[in-house]
Nucleic acid binder design. Structure first.
Lengths: 346, 346
DNA sequence: CACAAAAATGTGCTCGAACACACTAATTTT
DNA sequence: AAAATTAGTGTGTTCGAGCACATTTTTGTG
């Protein structure tokens, strides 16, 4: 049972003290060429891995991480994030960690700014941020970075040098997945891309999905479908969509780019039309209900729970085990129907 | 920044020494009622979590884990397992772990017995086993358990008291997922369930999938489909399947219960019939090729890579962090089309 | 050559849990 | 009542990395 080699072993093999080996490993200088050579010779022969457990023993600081996300009560898309945070807390309970959540109002830029200001004043070690408002998020990230607070993002991609990590999905590709699904199930005819546009906050999101969706069909060529885009606002979406249905009798499929597919499904269900295929996003209870009913054919899982969990576990890996943080982690684009939905919800 | 409470802190609060606290925590006895009471009083007030890092520092044993699985060269379904093992090795490199793989011939019961005998003689701390052969696997598990070797299984479920853990999928539900997919895409007509029957080694597997598939339609009632089962053997599958195609002109969908969908796809492709929907299993290169071509409509990902990785990480959690091992972990049943396949492969 | 400054190297302590062992106090035995 | 036994308690060491500090060696300069 050959145990792992330690710094002490290397020191012995190289004929120096562990202090010298330590200086070589950490490039702290103050080492003679002779000692350096003999230690390097040993290091080349053996495969030294520092014992992370021992390394972290000394470091008995409690790392505090703040998660900044929209209030799940305002938009239930974010509900699963709570579970993701709980899971991370449970999983990492044994380490010196303190994870706390801070909610902002997804409809209110000011609230986003205020919450970030508050979190900044708490001076945590890291922030996991859902950067819903582009400009304000960049400013927040800058301030955090000034205070040496590590910032990671999830859900929305933000182009910034300071961001060490992003956990989310490729929205363009997600649009292509939806297109392929429509292509698999919808009859020849018209296809509508429906954006539920609440104060444009998801504008970039929805545009990327639309681009991907259209890209699939234009790349494929000679399509059986005519694709139109429909923008709906919260206030009058019902009448506006009902009008759209009347005007477009040949509608065979709808791709809803937000998590509000159930609102379309409700209307479709009333019209008793069963030849319109519906593809939407996210496993909200209301969406699942229509999925089970057959009104919605497929949902694409953006996996908010996993996004938060992974984002947190990257931070833990970084703080506790000194691992480098990847620049970005793209989660799989899960295709969900009534039969496999439960596995993605729990 | 209040740091975590240690044994020393508890000792101070209770007015005893850390040794006494240690005896209470580990129920080693030799503690007076008075000391016990005062320590318990402290423990009730605070929420003590032992520092796992410190606990494991002392324990500098190298844990050896053997993975026993079919030779990926005999059946490329198992190919991703190698990556799963590599990933686990990389991820857990920093801990005192030694993970090694042992292959058996999936067509040869004797080889399964021999490999397990060999692994048994190596006396590892744990074995992660793909229990392909039911009876022999039970015997092997029994022998391992006699030697106090922890056994976990993946891919195939095995009913046994000794098994602490299983990582895999619910095959019945996976059949239902396939049925729902067929129901979404196939035109009215005949549906065939195709079993590729290699020496019955997967018999239980395939039967469970078929049951789930049929269960979906019988539960739904008034189906547009007539379902037949076709068993093919490796030798003459081509002619047999071609005959089947000729005899069943109204065939609209095929559910292949193994990873050999590409063999059916090859034949379908030749006939130039494009109104037959194909659902199969597993992201083999050949399957992916037909998925991209459009011959295969969906693949169900059984995720062998993740199965092995999770199985190993459960063992690591157990050995390194003293976590309890769950009895079973059912992985999601991923629906894969040409657009989201890459996320499940890497 | 002396002697200071700088460079190189080694020593020793820390982290928290676990446990061996030494030690004291209480109890029983002779 | 002294000796022996046992119950109860505290102390000290270990694990490996990291780092402060002490110590030794080398180099430079008058």
């Amino acid at each position: 049972m050959d145990k792992k080699l330690t710094i002490k072993d290397i020191a012995q093999l190289a004929g120096v003290s562990k202090g010298t080996v330590d200086r070589v490993l950490h490039k702290r200088g103050k080492v003679s060429q002779k000692a350096l050579d003999s230690i390097n010779a040993v290091l080349e022969q053996i495969d030294y891995e520092p014992n992370l457990i021992a390394r972290n023993l000394k470091n008995n600081k409690i790392y505090s991480i703040c998660v900044v996300l929209p209030n799940p009560e305002s938009d239930s898309y974010w509900q699963p994030c709570i579970k993701g945070i709980e899971q991370a807390k449970k999983e990492f309970k044994a380490f010196n960690l303190s994870i706390s959540s801070y909610y902002f109002d997804p409809e209110d830029t000011e609230s986003f700014i205020a919450v970030n200001k508050n979190v900044l004043s708490l001076a945590p070690d890291a922030v996991l941020l859902a950067p819903l408002f582009y400009k304000e998020a960049l400013e927040a990230v800058e301030k955090y970075t000034e205070q040496d607070i590590l910032v990671n993002t999830f859900n929305n991609q933000l182009e910034s040098e300071e961001i060490r990590n992003f956990v989310g999905q490729d929205l363009h590709q997600s649009g292509r997945v939806a297109a392929k699904l429509i292509d698999s199930i919808a009859q020849k005819g018209q296809i509508a891309i429906v954006h539920f546009d609440e104060k444009f906050k998801n504008a970039v999101h929805m545009q990327e999905k639309e681009k991907g969706f259209r890209n699939y069909f234009s790349q494929k060529g000679n399509s059986d479908y005519e694709i139109t885009t429909l923008k709906l606002k919260r206030k009058n979406y019902e009448t506006k969509f009902e009008d759209f249905l009347k005007e477009n009798g040949n509608l065979k499929g709808i791709f809803i780019t937000t998590s509000k597919a159930y609102q379309i499904a409700e209307i479709i269900e009333k019209t008793k039309k069963d030849d319109i295929s519906l593809i939407g996003y996210d496993l909200l209870d209301k969406n699942i209900a229509f999925l089970n009913l057959g009104t919605i054919d497929f949902l694409i899982n953006q996996n908010p729970k996993q996004q938060v969990y992974l984002g947190l576990s990257f931070l833990v890996d970084h703080f506790i085990f000194g691992k480098e943080i990847n620049h970005s982690a793209l989660l799989p684009i899960d295709i969900v129907n009534s039969e496999n939905a439960s596995y993605y919800m729990e």
